[in-house]
Design a protein around this nucleic acid. Structure first.
Lengths: 236, 236
DNA sequence: ATGATTATGGTCTTTCTGACCACAATTGAA
DNA sequence: TTCAATTGTGGTCAGAAAGACCATAATCAT
């Protein structure tokens, strides 16, 4: 896996920015590097692209290796090409924005061979910060290589497209049976602001129910306190 | 320039999707390939990325080579990585969306060493088509490699961000002295629909004049027929 | 002068948005 | 059991924004 990179050659890698909503907070999965460079530093999971595979395939393969069994939404985010971004040599990285419900990730993270850890993404007026599982804060700039830039780019992109695309549904535990409050939680975590429940529901239903992309399955969920929520199904 | 690509190695290139508004129509600059593969076929201008330069630098360099003296707006569009996209071998291409006022391009296109040609982009219900300078139509799929896909991706992206970013101003002849009709022409060409002049002006001024990004230079342009238009300056 | 043309400002109606309230349906505590 | 707290759902209402449309201003061609 950690074979030497040849100098004077261009290498292509994919890096996965795996985002999820954990306990109501936007979070990212990071792995601690076990080899130089940046040994011991937290980084996005990455992988070299083989000569016969596309970047999309490589990203899917990466996900398979890092989180066996997880089938997540994935889209190309941006390509990072600074010549000095990797001290080993010329490595161009195509970053992928990967979205998955926390419940799916949880199972994979429990596997012994999986080394990824979940960091909360705190969003303040000065930008974003990472909160380690033990509560310790971390700056994006503390990540390996230019992964802090990738993180910021990805979060901004996600925020930018959450309300004119369908990405939010891929962060739901089950897009075939979700309540509007669950969807609202996704929006609030991504945008880092609370939304009015009534207006939110009106907006979502106007956008999706009128064209049949969302239908009420009329099954009432009976769980926590409060009135049980109606469940909906999303048509991707 | 057309040195052999080595097999079993990954090559990185940048392709430039140079868009402009020519005679009120969205247009793209293409070059006819003079060497195999795809000899004689129209293609986006492209260039290999050197080992010591970033893709942004390579794109700027490409522009310098193809259109000396033109200083255009440029942003990364998407990275195309299909393993079989180039018959010569493994070539990953980072596409750049490049926007320039037609008046600037015109000067460069007149130079004898410049071989680019301007194609109108016709937008119908079935997608886009290219109109050669001689009036002959051409499908995007007739372009070399996957350049048709790049073209479609770029046009869609431009349309998507024209009304929440500042890209439109980079298609104006002079963003330091333009009339609102000129800006409206840009919008109409990109979106391929006519807009109400009154509502358009209200929208633009509300978005930009209130925060000082646009200021009226109060110089009246005296040219064609009709009432002379007030000129504005855009602060980038 | 006169009509055609383009620019600009305004109205009016409809739609969308945000703030807010009322009530429904559940749970947990008194 | 009753009541308070909690969560979900529907509605109102005012203000903002968007779209259709008209009126007028300032130029040019004839």
């Amino acid at each position: 896996m950690h074979r030497q990179l040849e100098p004077d050659r261009l290498h292509l890698s994919v890096d996965g920015l795996i985002l999820t909503i954990c306990e109501g907070q936007l979070s990212v999965l990071l792995s601690r590097r076990s080899h130089p460079p940046c040994e011991g530093v937290w980084a996005l999971p990455g992988r070299l692209v083989a000569l016969d595979e596309s970047a999309d395939e490589a990203a899917r393969q990466l996900l398979q290796e890092m989180l066996p069994g997880v089938n997540a939404y994935s889209e190309q985010l941006y390509t990072f090409t600074r010549a000095d971004r990797d001290p080993r040599g010329r490595v161009v990285s195509i970053a992928y924005l990967i979205l998955s419900p926390w419940e799916h990730l949880q199972d994979a993270l429990a596997l012994p061979e999986v080394t990824l850890q979940c960091f909360r993404i705190g969003q303040g007026p000065e930008g974003i910060a990472l909160i380690r599982p033990d509560g310790h804060p971390l700056s994006p700039d503390d990540l390996a290589f230019d992964h802090g830039t990738i993180l910021r780019t990805g979060v901004t992109r996600l925020q930018g497209k959450i309300d004119y695309t369908d990405v939010s549904f891929h962060l739901l535990q089950d897009m075939q049976a979700f309540s509007l409050s669950e969807l609202q939680t996704v929006f609030e975590a991504v945008l880092n602001q609370s939304l009015d429940a009534s207006n939110f529901r009106r907006g979502i239903l106007a956008k999706y129910e009128s064209i049949g992309r969302i239908v009420q399955t009329s099954i009432a969920k009976k769980q926590g306190r409060g009135r049980p929520a109606a469940l909906y199904r999303f048509d991707p």
